[in-house]
Amino acid sequence: MKRVCVTGAGGFIGHHLVTFLKERGYWVRGVDLKYPEYTEVDADEFELLDLRRWDAALQAMRGVDQVYALAADMGGMGYISTHHAEILRNNSLINLHTLDAALINGVQRYLYSSSACIYPEYLQTEADVVPLKESDAYPAQPQDAYGWEKLFTELLCSYYADEYPMETRIVRFHNIYGPLGTYDGGREKAPAAICRKVALAEDGDSIEIWGDGEQTRSFCYIDDCVEGIYRIMQSDYAKPLNLGTDEMVSIKQLAHMVTELAGKRDISLEHVPGPQGVRGRNSDNSLLRKVLGWEPATSLRDGLVPTYEWIETMLTSRDRV
């Protein structure tokens, strides 16, 4: 039985990945600062460890064959645009310690979770953006500290694989969403935030949208995400790969889609000042299809249905308490 460690296992993608790996017969150690908030622990072992500490990283990496490194200080645009120093410091410590501890403990293969935030601002100034290819990362100009930290660690993983006896894999996430994820408190991302606002609104109400709503993104459903992570880990491809969809929508279109799915057709959008990130971003999946013979298949509409239903249920249950 192959033994793996998933860092960030208390987070959204991490706990979904733990479940996915357990269903496929892996022995899994989950590591995080916290337990999963909305579901039970599926891991064989779950250790509460602060991977900013070297001793914690060494403990986490012991006795495993593979590591899925998902641990990160992160959140939606409201969070990552206002916590640059904290994010850069925390994530740099997590990544340096985890990677080095994995090498020392004899880990065979290490997957690093990067982000579409590594792509240059100068390629994302228009809403009708050209889909971003993996090779577009350089010349580098990420928008925020979060993107710089991710890009730096991609390079570090590549150098480790070149110079040490440990293989690395790199996945660039494009806006992952779905049930059992953060939906309030400031760290939630756009789909969850809009689902929450619509669920709380009555017909005739308005919901707030940051900016004019014309900024564009593509969104990847969590089930596709964890399958993609697993396929990339099993592949022989060591360079970065996008993991997202190429179904680009504006934030305004996303909001209208959620209100329609909720059956609330008389909700208006109130445009307010707020951080918007880059003007447009979309994933080019050409290389992903070539390497894996696969790409995410869940449409945004199909993925929003269970996402909205879960968030609505959580809000209803909370109100009853």
Score class of each variant (00 low, 15 high):
V64C: 11
L96T: 04
L269R: 06
V41E: 08
L243N: 00
P165T: 08
V64Q: 05
W54A: 11
R53Q: 13
R53L: 14
D205Y: 07
L49G: 08
A238I: 09
Y237I: 03
D205L: 10
P179N: 05
S81R: 09
P273Y: 12
L269K: 04
Y308C: 01
Q234M: 15
E208H: 10
V67G: 03
L96Y: 09
W310S: 04
L241W: 02
D65H: 13
A137Q: 03
S235N: 03
F152T: 13
M248E: 14
I267R: 00
E247D: 15
Y110V: 02
A161N: 11
A60R: 04
D319W: 07
M257K: 10
A192N: 07
L288M: 15
I170R: 01
Y110N: 01
G75T: 05
I232R: 00
Y183E: 02
E270F: 10
E167R: 10
E202R: 15
F173I: 11
P120S: 02
S158Y: 09
A9P: 05
Y308F: 15
G25F: 03
S206A: 15
N175Y: 15
H16S: 12
D236L: 08
Y35K: 14
V41G: 05
L96E: 08
A262R: 04
Y110L: 01
Q141E: 15
S158G: 13
G178M: 00
K189R: 15
G106S: 08
D128K: 07
T19I: 11
Y221Q: 00
R172A: 06
V18C: 14
T182H: 13
N95F: 08
H97L: 09
Y79C: 08
E86L: 12
S283L: 02
Q66G: 03
Y230Q: 03
D42R: 13
C117D: 09
G303R: 09
G178L: 06
C195G: 05
E149L: 12
L88N: 09
D302C: 05
S135M: 07
A85G: 07
D73L: 13
I13F: 09
Q276F: 01
I229K: 01
L151R: 00
G30P: 08
A199R: 04
E121L: 11
R301Y: 10
S206C: 11
F46T: 02
C220A: 07
Y230H: 14
I207L: 08
A238Q: 11
R29I: 03
Y26V: 07
S250M: 10
T19F: 11
F219W: 09
F173K: 00
R318I: 06
E208L: 12
V129G: 00
W294P: 06
F219Y: 15
A9N: 04
S299R: 04
Y221A: 01
R109H: 01
A140V: 04
I207R: 06
G228K: 02
V67F: 08
D319F: 04
